[in-house]
């Protein structure tokens, strides 16, 4: 027998030349139908008033070529934002992108050009989502995709109303990754920016895989550097849907804060390196050296698994931690706090 040497040859993965056999025409037609199906549930949101734009228009072509980012006085975009009709009686889910401007008036315009005054019902600071309410009946909600429909490698069509209510802005990419940003967001290669924050990420079947949000890998709100960079984030449908009833009641949802610094090299259970004084962890009696092995039903072995498990919860949620200290094992129930400095 001859051993294959260095290059692994002849191990054909997948159908040969799958890419070439692909029917671009079918993909194009299906993309357009998917857009059509979702479009009626995608609204424009105008946020008026609030912080003034600090922008000086260039006076010549050369000045314009320099780019606005290089210019002093640059501030956040003021154009229309995008939202999703989530219930026919006037509930609109969108991103918190425009809230940063502290607008005085919110006006929602549906696909047919009808405008409504909106009120802010609640916001989710962990996922950069907010829920608006307008006085309307008979709106057409979007269709959410089932959780199992969300797979890496699926096509993902991003839609937005950043060009105004009468123009749907379309870009297409794929689902690039899951469980990003503390396990809260999916990642897509579609062009994502203020043009479509708050808009849907749509499957070929015309179902909403997730809602586009201005999260960034550095934490905080996405800045202009990552607009349309091929790295954009969306809150998966299942989490967005779960947040809606809480948003409609709670006002502000904050990320759940435990108050431990995990050892990054933890392998079998998350070893606690530090505990913040006064934090929920400290109050529950956790100490450096303790090992967290599960959050609720979710076993955690590595630091990122703990972050993802906690990321599913908000401040005020009660969680059950399985902890071992030496040979001792116990279960603690504690209430997550809000991160220090969050909100006002």
């Amino acid at each position: 027998m001859r051993l294959t040497c260095f290059a692994v040859l002849g191990v054909a993965l997948g159908a040969p030349l799958a890419a070439q056999s692909r029917d671009e025409g079918a993909l194009e037609r299906v993309t357009k139908r998917a857009i059509e199906r979702v479009a009626v549930g995608v609204v424009e949101i105008e946020a008026l008033g609030g912080l003034e734009e600090a922008f000086q228009a260039p006076t010549n072509e050369a000045g314009a070529e320099e780019g606005i980012l290089a210019r002093k006085g640059f501030k956040q975009a003021y154009g229309p934002s995008t939202g999703l009709v989530v219930r026919e009686d006037g509930w609109i889910l969108t991103s918190t992108f425009f809230l940063r401007r502290k607008p005085r008036h919110l006006i929602v315009t549906t696909h047919d050009g009808k405008s409504y005054l909106a009120t802010l019902a609640g916001q989710d600071e962990a996922r950069a989502l907010c829920l608006l309410k307008v006085q309307a009946k008979g709106l057409t909600p979007v269709t959410w995709a089932a959780p199992e429909a969300l797979r890496v490698g699926r096509y993902a069509i991003a839609l937005g109303r950043g060009l105004g209510y009468e123009h749907l802005a379309v870009s297409r990419g794929i689902v690039s990754g899951l469980n990003r940003i503390g396990g809260r967001a999916l990642q897509s290669s579609a062009a994502i920016s203020p043009m479509n924050y708050g808009g849907p990420l749509v499957s070929l079947e015309g179902e909403v895989l997730g809602i586009l949000v201005p999260l960034s890998m550095q934490g905080g709100q996405a800045s202009v550097e990552i607009y349309d960079s091929g790295i954009g984030f969306a809150i998966p449908a299942v989490d967005a849907v779960a947040a809606i009833p809480r948003l409609s009641k709670a006002g502000v949802l904050r990320p759940g804060f435990l108050g431990v610094v995990p050892d990054p090299l933890s392998q079998d259970g998350v070893r606690i390196a530090q505990v913040s004084p006064g934090s929920p962890a400290a109050q529950a009696g956790l100490e450096p050296g303790d090992t967290i092995t599960a959050v609720g039903e979710r076993a955690v072995e590595r630091a990122w698994q703990l972050r993802h498990a906690l990321g599913a919860h908000y401040a005020g949620d009660e969680v059950e931690l399985s902890v071992s200290r030496g040979t001792e094992r116990k279960t603690l129930t504690l209430t997550l706090g809000a991160p220090p400095g969050a909100g006002k």
Partner: peptide
């Protein structure tokens, strides 16, 4: 560049 969205 769109001033409204800060995008290219």
């Amino acid at each position: 560049e769109s001033r409204a969205t800060n995008t290219l």
